[in-house]
């Protein structure tokens, strides 16, 4: 009898037994979280932080300046309101930058419904703009304080987070939740939150174009063969 080399895989295995949709599939472990605080307005921040009114204003202004840059953009107000609700959208000041092959007209974006910033007591003495990329290294257990609980100074140590203040939005179908421009849910109400690292740095909400690819597929059961 002739000897043959094995013709099948020595082993087969599945690493991932979960639905593909919307999940990030990597081998890495649990995402570290960072403490932050969410306010619906500068007034709310100042009421809760009478000692830090100036900081509240600075944070708010930074977030508001970022808002038109990162807010998701829509080609029509109807598309925007479909995601964010009636009377919750405004014209974006940025036009040409987002224009694709079309005319380059106005774009619409949701209104800013709040903002997220570092917790007051957790700030280093000197803000270092642009250094927030290392903020994800906070151990989980160190971050369970209320924002205005100034007395628990024990955690204000080496790993203090500096994060760039960023605008937050609320979608139409989940109006209680604050979301970042790129649609990460960060809080269900104002106050202290723990933020997953991917929501720490402000990221641009895509220009939503209804469609992408896929139009031709309407006529076939499977696009494969």
């Amino acid at each position: 009898m002739t000897m043959h080399l094995r013709k099948r895989s020595n082993t087969v295995a599945l690493a991932l037994l979960m639905p593909a949709t919307g999940l990030l599939m990597t081998a890495c472990s649990q995402d570290p979280q960072t403490p932050a605080v969410v306010y619906s307005s500068v007034q709310e921040c100042q009421d809760k932080n009478p000692q830090g009114k100036e900081q509240c204003l600075t944070d708010y202004q930074q977030a508001a300046a970022l808002h038109p840059k990162v807010a998701p953009k829509y080609q029509t107000v109807q598309e925007c309101e479909a995601d964010f609700g009636a009377q919750r959208c405004e014209i974006s000041p940025e036009r040409q930058q987002y224009a694709s092959n079309s005319s380059g007209g106005s774009f619409f974006m949701p209104m800013m419904m709040g903002y997220m910033a570092s917790q007051m007591f957790n700030r280093p003495q000197v803000m270092q703009p642009g250094s927030f990329s290392s903020a994800g290294a906070q151990p989980r257990d160190n971050v369970r304080q209320a924002d205005n609980n100034q007395s628990s100074g024990s955690t204000g140590g080496a790993a203090a987070a500096t994060m760039q203040p960023q605008p937050l939005y609320k979608s139409r179908d989940d109006a209680g939740t604050f979301r970042t421009a790129d649609n990460s849910a960060v809080a269900s109400k104002s106050g202290a939150v723990n933020v997953p690292s991917q929501a720490l740095s402000p990221r641009v909400g895509g220009q939503r174009r209804i469609g992408g690819f896929g139009a031709t597929a309407a006529s076939v059961e499977s696009a494969g063969g």
Binding site: L23, M25, T26, C28, Y98, R209, G212, F213, G214
Partner: peptide, 15 residues
């Protein structure tokens, strides 16, 4: 590192 994206939601910015 792999991530799923429905083709219909593929967006574009600046080409």
């Amino acid at each position: 590192s792999a991530q799923y994206i429905p083709l219909e939601t593929l967006g574009q910015r600046g080409g």
